[in-house]
Amino acid sequence: MEIRLRPVELIHKEILFNLYQFYLYDFSRISEEDLGFDGRFEIKLDHYWEDPRWNPFFIYYEERIIGFLIILFENYDTVPDPTHVIYDFLILSKYRRKGFGKLAAFQAFNLYQAKWKVVQIKTNEQAIHFWRDVVNQYTVGQYTEVFREDLNKYVQSFTNKTARTNCANGER
């Protein structure tokens, strides 16, 4: 099973916009966001190509896009060693629970040796379970988790600066 991440070029912005419709649809059960009058969820994406802190990637399997992820370099403009955050993450329903998401996350982590954070809203139990499992496997248990009451979110934090992880199987 080979997963590849490819940066999203500006010329593919519409494809990312279309994928965000699935993401926002899935997330609407938590966010309670409604469709716009045109039958689509509203999302602005231009900042992904205007601001170097944002890094969108398509997730490919067998030359097909099966999802996307966004990596944010938090405080990139003020801190020489920014924390990297998985900001948004989508695996299409057909490919869920088959290991594709985990492999994509491992590859994302392996792109940068950095401090990392992954954040989930308290009511998104599927995401909490998924990210706890992924981060635990990737770090071999070497991470911290806090619940931010002010944000109503769980945050897993770790660093991969001292070792490279094999993205194929998660071994260190």
Rank of each mutant, 00 (worst) to 15 (best):
I3N: 07
L5S: 05
L5F: 07
L5Q: 03
L5M: 11
V8Q: 02
V8F: 02
V8R: 01
V8W: 00
I11K: 14
I11Y: 08
H12Q: 13
K13W: 04
K13P: 04
I15H: 01
F17K: 09
F17L: 10
Y20E: 11
Y20G: 12
F22R: 05
Y23N: 08
Y23G: 08
Y23C: 06
Y25Q: 06
D26K: 00
D26Y: 07
S28H: 04
S28A: 07
R29E: 11
S31Q: 02
S31N: 13
E33G: 09
D34T: 11
L35P: 03
D38E: 07
G39D: 10
G39V: 10
F41Q: 05
K44F: 09
L45V: 10
Y48L: 11
Y48R: 01
W49S: 11
W49V: 13
E50P: 01
P52Y: 06
N55C: 03
P56C: 07
I59N: 01
E62R: 15
E62N: 15
E63I: 15
E63P: 11
I66Q: 06
I66G: 11
I66N: 04
G67N: 03
I71R: 01
I71L: 13
F73R: 02
E74L: 14
N75V: 03
D77H: 06
T78A: 07
T78G: 05
V79K: 06
P80R: 06
D81M: 09
H84E: 04
I86Q: 01
I86P: 01
I86E: 05
D88A: 10
D88W: 08
L90V: 00
I91T: 06
I91Y: 03
I91R: 06
I91H: 04
L92P: 00
L92Q: 03
K94S: 08
K94P: 00
R97S: 06
R97Y: 02
G99R: 12
G99V: 13
G101F: 02
K102S: 02
A104R: 04
A104W: 02
A104I: 10
A105S: 03
A105H: 01
F106E: 02
F106G: 03
A108Y: 01
N110T: 09
N110H: 04
N110I: 05
L111G: 02
Y112E: 09
K115L: 10
K115G: 08
W116E: 07
V118S: 02
V119C: 02
I121H: 05
K122T: 11
K122H: 15
K122G: 06
T123M: 12
T123V: 14
N124F: 04
N124M: 03
E125Q: 15
I128G: 09
H129W: 14
F130I: 10
W131N: 00
R132P: 02
R132K: 14
D133A: 15
V134W: 07
V135G: 00
Y138V: 13
Y138H: 14
